[in-house]
């Protein structure tokens, strides 16, 4: 007789319902014909049509994507370097401060990070004349700073769990340190680098608070636009926008998950076959 933890399974089901009911409700109401967001007025897709003609939304989305791509790429480069420093260099001047700088933004309340960055930008404008206008560049700098520490954390963890023997093997086989880096280390940790980029991209695309403080007039990202609209209440077009976002992200994550799962299964099958062949 095996004991089945029914209570736990029930909680899992309730937990998943808690996660998904609000999102599903939002999706259903995005097809609501009524202008009143909470009163059902029949099925309609008109809000989607309006959304695609709303230039303000499209502009904001494009700006958000631009910032996300640039900041994720820069954050991945800087974060990978920082991850290397933390995982591989046991002693250097100011290591304690450096590891503090890589951890602190993870726990710093966003309001503080945002206001602190804004103060810096204002003071810099006063003292050195840059930035005269806040917008793309200031938002991107703030996003890079914020998301590079996430990348660094991922890369550091990957490097610490990596088998150092393969690097030594490459040195043993005649490669110089920088060659080892290109031939062995970077290819082996490349999935972690990709994961870091995706995380940085998502963080940037999603950020409201820090963007709110570091943006200037006329530079509205999508989350800022949504935020300002949501403050005024629930509207069907936001429901539609939210549904599109959720669907794109959901699809992306599910596809990535399935691909990873399939790669893992194939690897297991290969290993099992190799094992049997040699018996």
């Amino acid at each position: 007789m095996k004991h089945r933890p029914w209570f736990l399974y029930t909680m899992v089901v309730f937990g998943l319902a808690f996660f998904y009911v609000p999102i599903l409700s939002m999706i259903v109401y995005s097809f609501n014909a009524s202008r009143l967001a909470t009163v059902w007025g029949g099925w309609s897709t008109k809000w989607y049509g309006e959304l695609f003609q709303n230039e303000q939304v499209l502009e904001a989305a494009i700006l958000s994507l631009k910032i996300a791509v640039v900041s994720a790429t820069a954050a991945t480069v800087l974060g990978t370097l920082a991850g290397f420093a933390l995982a591989r260099v046991k002693r250097f001047r100011g290591r304690t401060l450096f590891s503090g700088l890589v951890t602190a933004p993870l726990v710093m309340p966003e309001v503080i990070t945002g206001i602190a960055s804004l103060m810096l930008f204002i003071l810099m404008a006063q003292w050195i004349g840059w930035p005269q206008r806040r917008g793309f560049s200031t938002i991107t700098i703030a996003h890079i700073t914020f998301s590079l520490v996430f990348v660094a954390t991922i890369i550091r963890a990957r490097l610490l769990s990596m088998d150092r023997d393969i690097e030594e093997a490459a040195v043993d086989l005649g490669s110089r340190p920088w060659q080892v880096m290109w031939d062995v280390t970077l290819p082996v940790i490349s999935p972690a680098i990709l994961a870091g980029w995706l995380l940085a991209f998502t963080i940037s695309l999603d950020d409201v608070v820090i963007t709110n403080f570091t943006t200037g007039p006329g530079n509205t990202t999508l989350p800022i636009l949504i935020w300002s609209k949501v403050k005024l209440g629930v509207t069907p077009d936001i429901n539609a926008l939210a549904t599109i976002t959720v669907c794109i992200v959901g699809l992306g994550v599910v596809v990535a998950g399935l691909l990873l799962n399939r790669a893992e299964k194939r690897r297991q099958k290969d290993e099992a076959m190799a094992y049997q062949e040699n018996r």
Binding site: D172, V184, V188
Partner: peptide, 14 residues
């Protein structure tokens, strides 16, 4: 002029 066979074999996985 020395090469090593590692205990873990240290084959490059990629």
């Amino acid at each position: 002029p020395v090469n090593m066979m590692f205990q873990s074999y240290a084959l490059f996985p990629h």
